[in-house]
Amino acid sequence: MTWTAEDIQHWLKQFADQIHEHKDELTDLDQKIGDGDHGINMARGVKEMNKLFDEKTFATPGELFKAVAMVYIGKIGGASGPLYGSAMMKMASSAGTQETLSDKELIDALKAGKTAIEQRGKASVGEKTMVDVWVPLLQKFDGSDVDWNAFSDEADELKAKTKEMHAKKGRAAYLGARSVGHIDPGSASSALFFQTLAATARERG
């Protein structure tokens, strides 16, 4: 499909809904292997993003990503704030001033976002962080002719796979072997991020 700023806004609103719906679940996951605030942090961020959407409309996807980046950086806090925020910031650069994005261009923007997360967080695949969703997912789907159902399922599977990982980065790493057996909270929110994207694509594409 062709993604206007409004389509992207629609996606991110769905993402916000999902975060609110899964807020306690994300916090529970973070209580198990972190400090119990991931759902709270993300909910604070997307609530503020929704306020932004109520107040402003955006001419281009790039403009929108940039504004959302500022909200995430300024409101989420913790580790996930700078990570989601930096991702959005790089997605804005990648999207540039184009009025619409093709699937391929959107996926390219997400890949730029993925790289930002890797750079900020210095984590690699297998270390039980959101990188374990972002990196393999965007490796598998390069944007030409995306099967959005498969995309969504893959995000879910990648999230589930973090359960058996032994954390090496983020707070869960402090638990050592005790981190095994629990899904990584940032991977869970990332799965929602990509699943709402796929849902929007299916709905509107």
């Binding site: 119990g36 709270i40 950086i73 300024g74």
Partner: peptide, 11 residues
Amino acid sequence: AGEVFTSPTPD
């Protein structure tokens, strides 16, 4: 001071 147990934001 960030939110409880949450790093403050860069701004």
